[in-house]
Computed example of a mutant assay.
Amino acid sequence: MRNWLFAIFLIAITGMAQAQTDKDKKEILATLNRQASDWNQGNIKSFMNGYWESDSLMFVGKTGVTYGYDATYQGYLKRYPDLATMGKLKFTYINFSFPGPGVAFLVGKFHLTRPEKGDLEGHYTLLWKKIKGKWVIICDHTSG
């Protein structure tokens, strides 16, 4: 009898976790869609709202590791000084998982359509954490 109750308990818990995962996944994807829209409007400041506003934020790119929200923001402003350089951003999602409670892992591809500067594309890995009820990127590794 106890094994039966335990099995029902596991099924119920799994179902509840899945429902939460689906909701969280939608929130994360909505943030990414908003980021793409912000980028395409030339609004890097608003684009940064998807990132953890902390000195512990980590951005890994072709020049190495950048620590901190402000340094990451300044790096974006330096690398993308105008709309022609920014281009139009499109994200493609390759793999999405929740390796633990309050943590999400996303691998994807980005493409910048830039008629004047030449297109740019690459892959990214994002580590998300739910902090104070909001999903934020705590580590971004982007190649391209």
Rank of each mutant, 00 (worst) to 15 (best):
N3W: 04
A7T: 09
A7C: 09
A12H: 00
I13S: 06
I13N: 10
I13G: 03
T14P: 03
Q20K: 08
Q20S: 13
K23V: 14
K23T: 13
K26P: 00
I28P: 05
A30Y: 03
T31F: 07
N33I: 04
R34N: 10
A36M: 06
D38E: 14
W39H: 02
N40F: 03
G42C: 08
G42D: 12
K45L: 05
K45R: 15
K45S: 07
S46A: 14
M48D: 04
M48F: 02
N49Q: 14
E53F: 02
D55M: 04
S56V: 01
L57P: 01
V60W: 00
G61S: 12
K62P: 00
G64D: 09
T66N: 05
Y67K: 04
G68V: 02
D70C: 00
A71R: 13
Y76K: 07
L77V: 08
K78L: 08
K78M: 05
K78C: 00
D82S: 12
A84K: 06
M86I: 10
G87I: 09
G87M: 09
F91L: 14
T92L: 14
Y93H: 09
Y93L: 06
N95W: 10
F96A: 04
F96T: 13
S97R: 15
F98M: 12
P99K: 11
G100M: 13
G100K: 11
F105N: 07
F105L: 08
V107M: 11
G108Y: 12
H111M: 10
H111F: 10
H111G: 00
T113P: 09
R114V: 12
E121D: 14
G122M: 10
H123P: 00
Y124G: 03
T125V: 15
W128Y: 14
K129N: 00
K130Y: 04
K132H: 10
K132A: 13
G133N: 11
K134D: 06
K134V: 04
W135T: 03
W135A: 05
V136F: 07
I137V: 15
I137D: 03
I137K: 05
C139T: 10
